[in-house]
């Protein structure tokens, strides 16, 4: 992994209006209460650059939504937060990504630990072809979080409750997780992610494969979860971003164009590109 460290930190609050096009982000990118900070992040797939010079903070217990047209790099950005990009052949991340001040791309950092702290929910529900119980218990088991069977049962129940799935599956914990409906599967994946009590949860278009009712449930869940977790969510649906997030980040062709409180982004976006996107002139 090729990590270039930027020593010159940017000022904590940027002057939002005097930014030239394609060079820096407009809006409120930074936070005084940052959980994760990214400075001058560039991501490459082989020779092709997917992310250009992104600077943004993710605040504690906030829900930040990433929106933008297809291929704009929002998923790539999300996956650089828990180093899932490591698994992609030829992917290279440059710049400074930190969580609580700790460099996530430091050679000494163990991705296993990082991913226990930064959970992830994927676009397509991907429960393991195991029982519901084993799906949720998997994380605690591999990380050795439960000392006894009773502890484990408790973690599983709590996680399923937090994911509002407990009532629906408590009678069939030992049936296959793949037998659930799509929405239930996705909530199972969320339960699986929160079973290891991560600090941050990354969601990569978690509702794109779900029907509106299942989507509403997940959105409700995201709101509840934001009390305890920091959540970064990539979404194709602007309505969803408007409903669930506190701040919204707009990506365009690999550049982070604007980050602002959600309300502002959808009512009076600062940048022309953002406005063009949310008014449906492209997308």
């Amino acid at each position: 992994m090729n990590v270039k460290r930027e020593t010159t930190a940017k000022p904590a609050v940027m002057d939002t209006l005097e930014i030239s096009e394609h060079q820096a982000t407009v809006g409120h990118c930074f936070s005084d209460n940052a959980k994760m900070t990214m400075r001058n992040v560039n991501v490459f797939y082989g020779e092709k650059q997917a992310i250009f010079d992104v600077n943004v903070d993710i605040a504690k217990n906030e829900v930040i939504a990433m929106i933008g047209p297809s291929g704009c790099g929002k998923s790539t950005f999300l996956r650089s937060l828990n180093r899932m990009n490591d698994t992609v052949e030829g992917c290279r991340v440059e710049g400074d990504v930190r969580m609580d001040g700790e460099d996530l791309y430091a050679p000494k950092l163990d991705v296993v630990e990082l991913r226990a702290r930064v959970g992830m929910v994927f676009q397509k529900p991907n429960p393991f072809p195991k029982t519901i119980y084993d799906n949720v218990a998997y994380g605690p088991k591999i990380h050795g979080l439960a000392d006894t069977r009773v502890d484990l049962d408790e973690i599983v129940e709590n996680s399923l409750r937090k994911a509002s799935l407990w009532e629906e599956v408590k009678e069939r914990l030992h049936q296959s997780g793949t037998g659930l409906s799509g929405g239930q599967q996705q909530r199972l994946c969320i339960a699986r992610a929160i079973a290891v009590s991560p600090e941050v949860i990354l969601m990569d278009e978690p509702c794109s494969a779900l029907d509106p009712i299942a989507t509403a449930k997940i959105e409700e869940l995201i709101e509840e979860l934001s009390e305890n977790f920091t959540i970064a969510i990539v979404t194709h649906s602007m309505q969803q971003a408007a409903r669930v997030s506190h701040r919204t980040a707009y990506f365009h062709l690999g550049r982070l164009i604007e980050v602002n409180p959600t309300e502002q982004v959808f009512t009076m976006p600062e940048h022309d590109l953002t406005e063009a996107y949310i008014t449906g002139r492209f997308g």
């Binding site: 296993v112 992830m120 991907n126 393991f128 591999i142």
Partner: peptide, 27 residues
């Protein structure tokens, strides 16, 4: 074995060896 299973395991913080042993190999 679908890549989504691998991603799920890695995303949970399984090491590559655990991913192979717990998920890829049985499937």
């Amino acid at each position: 074995v679908p890549p989504s299973i691998r991603e799920a395991a890695l995303g949970m913080g399984a090491s590559k060896y655990q991913m192979v042993l717990h998920h890829v190999l049985p499937l």
